[in-house]
């Protein structure tokens, strides 16, 4: 340390604040949404503009921290002059666009998408989707009684290009037994709407582990490890980021799954507290879901720049050391 003063005293303040380089922002364009003329950046999606002006647009496969895949199609809106409806989540606004978010075409498509999901997927742990169903007066029961569930792993073995001809007596669903193959989380693909979020979180949008992908085709498409091997034989590193983004409860902490089964899951009685993970020095925000002084689930807020909602196995599941309290009198 050949400069004593430098070592002993903090350096002086810089005169200017260090900043990220500013990107050129294109000039705003004029658009019309539901009769309202307004200006918006052409970098903005229709969904972003809708949210900004308070138009509540339903979304299922969209999440701020993931690349839009625009597959659920529940966010579709009508752009006047466009042959088809467009997904609000990924379509960027263009000058002169006239957008209708609640036209009969929009309402019909949203209702039908929700009926399709409601009639083929168990939405019992998807309160948000159930809310949309009510809002759009979707009637999933009008497709007939659901077909009996598939046996374990049967759907995972279906080959593309062939399917058993339907009888017409029942309507097909994705119902199947829950996959329980480890102590940390379960996969109940009866509840899977195939929104791709888990694949994205496991892939380039966050974890980059690629333990799961969409396999198969058409209605038989499903989330799968390679050759449908159990998670412990897969590349899974149990970060649980797939659970964090799952909109329907298909992926769930095993603790939550077990408590729900036992009837002890009591969400209204739970508190959620943000704190910082106690492990490495990255400083990830953990939201601790606590019921009866016990951590029952850990999530991370999406709007935190450190995590963007994503955690690792230690942050997500490594909390048991504060509640292994066998010695404590209850």
């Amino acid at each position: 340390m050949n400069d004593e003063s430098y070592w002993f005293r903090p350096p002086p303040r810089s005169r200017e604040l260090p900043m990220a380089p500013v990107r050129d922002e294109p000039p705003p364009v004029e658009i019309t949404i539901d009769g309202r003329a307004l200006h918006a950046s052409p970098n903005a999606t229709i969904l972003e503009v809708c949210r900004r002006i308070g138009i509540d647009t339903p979304t299922l496969c969209y999440l701020e921290n993931l690349t839009p895949v625009n597959v659920c199609r529940v966010c579709v809106v009508e752009v006047v002059g466009s042959r088809t409806l467009v997904p609000a989540c990924s379509r960027r606004v263009e000058g002169g666009m006239v957008i209708l978010t609640d036209s009969p075409r929009v309402r019909l498509s949203r209702k039908m998408v929700l009926e399709f999901l409601g009639s083929s997927v168990d939405l019992s742990t998807a309160p948000q989707a159930r809310g949309y169903l009510a809002r759009y007066e979707a009637s999933p029961t009008r497709y007939g009684s659901p077909a009996p569930p598939a046996s374990a792993n049967e759907r995972d073995q279906r080959e593309p290009g062939h399917h058993r001809a339907p009888s017409g007596e029942t309507s097909e669903t994705v119902a199947q037994p829950t996959k329980v193959d480890n102590d940390l989380y379960i996969r109940d693909y009866s509840k899977c709407i195939l929104c791709y979020k888990c694949v994205e979180a496991c892939g380039t949008d966050a974890q980059n582990t690629f333990a799961i992908a969409v396999a198969g085709r058409g209605f038989d498409a499903r989330i799968s490890t390679e050759l449908n091997v159990p998670l412990p034989d897969s590349a899974c590193v149990y970060c649980g980021n797939c659970i964090g983004v799952c909109p329907t409860g298909a992926l769930m902490f095993k603790s939550e799954h077990d408590m729900r089964k036992a009837g002890t899951w009591n969400e209204p009685a739970q508190t959620q507290t943000d704190t910082i993970c106690s492990y490495c020095g990255v400083g990830c925000t953990l939201t601790l879901h606590v019921q009866d002084n016990t951590i029952v689930k850990v999530t991370s807020p999406m709007d935190v720049s450190v995590t963007h909602g994503h955690l690792c196995i230690k942050g997500r599941f490594g909390f048991e050391h504060v509640q292994n309290r066998q010695d404590e009198p209850k």
């Binding site: 083929s120 309507s171 209605f219």
Partner: peptide, 21 residues
């Protein structure tokens, strides 16, 4: 129903419901 890629809901489920109907 066989050839739908399965990506979007209208087609993935719609082609099934169409065939059933």
């Amino acid at each position: 129903r066989d050839e739908s890629c399965g990506q979007c809901v209208p087609c993935r489920v719609g082609t099934v419901r169409q065939e059933e109907l």
